[in-house]
């Protein structure tokens, strides 16, 4: 499919998809960078910094597709209103100082979802999406393996396991918002147009079917794991937190974070952002 520039539904569907993809990556990276010069060791610092840069790079690839739709760069990041960001509330959660289990658990929950959703984009009818998926997948395997390697080592210790369990309890409901719609009608269009070949409900079910058995194999309790055995795995409204992010509703931490990363841009009175690199191919 080539994008019909006059079809407003198509444009809206593509924009919504790119924003939810890009915003997740951007905000997650923003949080990861808080661990720079604060990770448990110099080596783990280098690794997480790299993951942050990968995710930011992926955000840039998705945002770049918005430029095709006529967006200007400032309105994508620095001049967009805070309540028009559509990332999942999982990625905006603040870290407690020293709680290394949080970025690790967050990364695991996120990267499983990322792997699944990239797979649903491989055959996208929008060729640029399909093309970029391959590049991004090349970097995502490391992220997931990194999270799992850490998880397996952390749960081998009593204190580590208790901390991991707390992080799972805290983050799991937020992770479910990864499968919430920006707008239900637009989400239908995304699938109907073939931009993505699975529904959010299907992706949520698949995610649960991967994450729950894995966490249980580490002898961790998973909130809501009782869903299995009724009619399979499913994300239900009762499992969701108050703010889901996708619809523009965010937790308190988001406004502080947003304030911080847009500070310089506004303080200097900029009306465009610095471009070092050309547009990605």
């Amino acid at each position: 499919m080539t994008l019909d520039p006059n079809d407003l539904d198509e444009r809206e569907a593509l924009a919504a998809l790119c924003k939810r993809l890009g915003d997740d990556e951007f905000v997650l990276a923003e949080r990861y960078t808080e661990w720079q010069v604060r990770s448990p060791s110099l080596e783990s610092d280098l690794a997480l910094s790299n993951i942050a840069q990968d995710e930011l790079g992926h955000a840039r690839l998705w945002y770049d597709l918005l430029i095709d739709l006529g967006y200007e760069e400032p309105e994508i990041v620095y001049e967009r209103d805070a309540d028009e960001w559509h990332h999942s509330t999982l990625v905006e959660q603040p870290f407690a100082e020293g709680d290394w289990t949080d970025p690790i658990v967050r990364s695991y929950l996120y990267d499983v979802a990322e792997k699944l959703r990239l797979a649903t984009l491989e055959e996208s009818t929008h060729p640029k999406i399909a093309d970029r998926v391959g590049k991004i997948q090349g970097e995502e395997n490391y992220h997931l393996e990194h999270a799992q390697n850490w998880l397996e080592r952390l749960v081998a210790d009593d204190e580590g396991k208790e901390r991991v369990q707390n992080a799972v309890d805290r983050l799991f409901p937020y992770a479910l918002t990864l499968f919430e719609p920006v707008d239900p009608d637009v989400e239908d269009d995304i699938v109907d147009l073939g931009l993505r070949d699975a529904t959010l409900a299907e992706m949520g079910e698949e995610w649960l079917s991967v994450v729950i058995p894995y966490l249980e194999s580490l002898d961790l309790d998973v909130p809501e794991s009782g869903v299995e055995g009724m009619d399979g795995y499913a994300v239900t409204d009762e499992m969701l937190p108050e703010h889901v992010g996708r619809d523009g509703s965010h937790t308190e931490a988001w406004s502080d974070l947003f304030e911080e990363f847009t500070h310089t841009y506004h303080d200097l009175g900029r009306d465009q952002s610095t471009k070092i690199m050309g547009r990605p191919e």
């Binding site: 840069q53 840039r60 391959g134 590049k135 090349g138 970097e139 395997n141 070092i276 690199m277």
Partner: peptide
Amino acid sequence: DVPFGGTTDKAYR
């Protein structure tokens, strides 16, 4: 096992 140096644009480094 790993694409050393990444698979997306890292010109900034």
